[in-house]
Design a protein around this nucleic acid. Structure first.
Lengths: 218, 218
DNA sequence: TATTTTGGAAAACGGCAAGTTTCTAAATCA
DNA sequence: TGATTTAGAAACTTGCCGTTTTCCAAAATA
């Protein structure tokens, strides 16, 4: 039985150049480029096939609908959005440094060229593909917010922070860190920020979040 | 000369039902609804004419290209984005209240159904219409940020705040106030927030911005 | 070599939507 | 009333694109 699945059952006729899975992978990569370059409506299946270096016939055998191809492109890429927050690792640093590091991770994730292109596509097509919008939100927003909120809560238990609503605080933190940078990039008005820019903004946001900016108390 | 321009020069033939300007206004409103409902690519000129209650012939006489119609819809609506920050008015309140009020104004502006629909359109079509993206950014982002930054700077001069970079701080403040709410709405996952929700978030953000959340100093 | 299976190029098909045109009715002046 | 000008409905043209199909060369087995 193990042998059956390993040994390729050679049959008559011209053999496939690649297994279908590999060809499909080529198609999905080509489609990602095409959709990102032109958006859903203006992307054409002919272009996708050309980018992939195969004929439309072969492409349609593997993935018969444009809408399905789009869904596959998006959902394959949504999986990248896991924000790794390792509390034990972060505990090695003092509070401000730890928060800064968390924000750098988060910023690098959400401000990459690829993420921004993906988000632009999902927003633009959220009417036509609401299930993609929901999936994106669940993974890229809810889960990363929860990861940050969990870390905040941990700091509260340690007595380092005093927060009533960690989820709300995490949401605010995300917003101050990435909103403007992400939107400028989505609108095509700025390149995705460099690591240095991300670090600088993380440092600023950590300071603001922890200390506020009121001069009265100082 | 004044009379010449006031007296309508009646000429032979069937008179227009409305002056062209009014008809064009109908078209633009109809187009706004159509674009918001379907996006640029899926909106059809036939639907626009139907919504406006006119024929395609009349519509094309007034605005010959779909792309031009889209530009007109968007740029007509970009003008609404002036954030009014009246320092004299805000000075009547204490710092936290004043900031809360400013954030409520800002939130009401940027989190309305209409603004969110507009932003979604601009983002989705920023490849095809980069000049619209640039105009939107200048008016809706740069100018409102500057208005907020100006107010922050004023508070610094009064000694109420201590801020190195008011523009960066304003950007952070905007982000924490609106990012998540706006994105959920843009993705179609939540309705635009109610005035109560906006007020609550403004209060939270003002507190966080002014005081931070570190418990060590308390 | 004959048969079988595969992939590619390109034509064909069908529908849709941008933009045009034709035809007719309405409304006004001479 | 007749000439003139305009609006609108609907048919039409045109071209694009998703999808299917045809035809043929390549590559394997028997």
């Amino acid at each position: 039985m193990g042998q059956n699945s390993v040994i390729p059952k050679r049959c008559r006729g011209r053999p496939q150049i690649r297994p279908d899975e590999e060809t499909l992978e080529l198609v999905v990569e080509a489609a990602a480029a095409e959709f990102q370059a032109n958006g859903y409506a203006s992307a054409t299946m002919c272009n996708v096939a050309q980018r992939a270096g195969i004929s439309t016939k072969t492409m349609y055998r593997l993935i018969p609908r444009k809408a399905d191809l789009f869904k596959k492109v998006i959902s394959d890429r949504i999986g990248q959005f896991m924000l790794q927050v390792d509390p034990a690792e972060l505990d090695k640093y003092d509070l401000a440094d730890a928060m800064e590091r968390m924000l750098v991770s988060f910023g690098s994730l959400t401000l990459s060229e690829e993420t921004i292109a993906l988000l632009r596509l999902v927003i633009g097509e959220s009417e036509r593909f609401p299930e993609l919008a929901a999936a994106f939100h669940e993974i890229a927003v809810v889960q990363t917010t929860n990861a940050m909120a969990g870390w905040l809560e941990r700091q509260c238990r340690r007595g380092a922070l005093k927060i009533d609503n960690p989820v709300l605080s995490a949401s605010a933190l995300r917003g101050m860190m990435t909103m403007d940078l992400q939107r400028s990039a989505m609108l095509g008005l700025a390149a995705a920020p460099t690591p240095d820019e991300i670090r600088a903004r993380a440092k600023f946001c950590a300071g603001l979040f922890l200390n506020g900016c009121q001069s009265a108390g100082e």
